[in-house]
């Protein structure tokens, strides 16, 4: 509230003089924030952005107005392309998701994930390896043993996606081969698994929670750093000796070339956001893995993840 009152004279001055006095301009942030959501309403990226904005507003962490805008199209290329075009402008921000890594691998985007000014990685989307209740397999060890005897059919969403990367890494580490069956939509993948057409499937925990609770499916392992509470005692791949090190980044980025102070301001602000009960509740409800990295560490993470994706996808022939 205080900051808003302090801003008021500056605002009037700006109206009268037609430009913001230098002293007010130096103090970041002092203007309206334009928040780009690169997907339509209702998706994971949209939900995270809207949660973040409501936390920023509730705790009055951002002094000005925040205007959220959905700029969907081209698997995120349009929205992030827009933010990229705002080079040097610290009053634009955007949330990232899996396509932030994969779209530039598939299309000629003018940007790469590392082109942006990284603020923070907040959480990651990680994958469960699932079997249907009719399967004889109960553990990852049994799965690997069965896979060595006969290559299993493993389903997932899309070929240029973490759904393919995780079982691929597992098969290389454990020494088996498998047939990857790619689906377009979650509904078709889940019914294929329930109908026992597939030997196993990959999914985010959030999308299959109900089927796990009812016992229609069993989770063998989780690809994240730690298993979300709601999943109970499902082990991680790492605990079983198969370190994955890839996950889809849900984080925040600013346009390229923004002032250091703006980046630092956002890092400090995000540190406050992740402490709020509202944020914890969001992570729990959506069954995300809390995975926080700031600034340059986030950029390194993006580079590493995209590198791992590109290597595997080049070998499989999905990309050149």
């Amino acid at each position: 509230m205080i900051s808003k009152i302090l801003m008021f004279p500056a605002f009037v001055a700006a109206l009268v003089l037609g430009s913001v006095p230098a002293s007010a301009q130096d103090k970041y942030p002092s203007k309206r924030l334009d928040w780009t959501i690169s997907f339509g309403p209702g998706g994971g990226n949209d939900i995270m952005s809207r949660n973040l904005i409501s936390i920023l507003e509730k705790y009055k962490l951002y002094p000005g107005t925040i205007v959220a805008e959905n700029r969907p199209g081209g698997s995120g290329a349009k929205g992030w392309g827009y933010v990229f075009s705002q080079t040097g402008n610290p009053y634009h921000i955007s949330s990232t998701s899996g396509s932030f890594i994969t779209t530039p691998l598939q299309a000629n985007t003018p940007w790469q994930p590392a082109s942006f000014t990284p603020v923070a990685l907040l959480a990651s989307d990680d994958m469960l390896l699932l079997v249907s209740k009719d399967s004889k397999i109960r553990t990852l060890q049994e799965f690997i043993a069965a896979a060595k005897a006969k290559p299993p059919a493993i389903g997932g969403i899309g070929a240029v996606n973490i759904d393919f990367i995780v079982p691929k890494l597992l098969s290389e580490k454990a020494g088996f081969t498998f047939n990857y069956v790619s689906f377009n939509k979650q509904g078709e993948l889940i019914t294929a698994l329930l109908s026992n057409a597939l030997d196993a499937g990959m999914s985010n925990p959030g999308e299959v929670m109900g089927l796990l609770q009812s016992g229609d499916m069993r989770a063998l392992a989780f690809s994240g750093k730690s298993t979300p509470k709601a999943l109970g005692n499902v082990p991680t791949f790492a605990e079983l000796g198969y370190e994955m090190g890839v996950s889809l980044p849900r984080g925040l980025v600013l346009p390229p070339g923004v002032p250091k102070e703006a980046q630092q301001w956002w890092i400090e602000t995000v540190k406050k956001v992740v402490q709020t009960p509202e944020w914890k509740e969001y992570i729990d409800k959506q069954l995300l893995t809390e995975n926080v990295l700031y600034g340059e560490d986030f950029r390194t993470f993006l580079n590493k993840t995209q590198g791992a994706f590109a290597d595997i996808l080049r070998k499989s022939g999905a990309i050149k």
Binding site: G73, G74, A77, Q106, T109, G158, A318
Partner: peptide
């Protein structure tokens, strides 16, 4: 669009709008 099985792009001319 994207060949669902191999992940290769088909007739998209490297345009992000055509991936889908």
């Amino acid at each position: 669009g994207v060949d669902l099985e191999t992940g290769q792009t088909r007739f998209t001319f490297k345009s992000a709008e055509m991936i889908g």
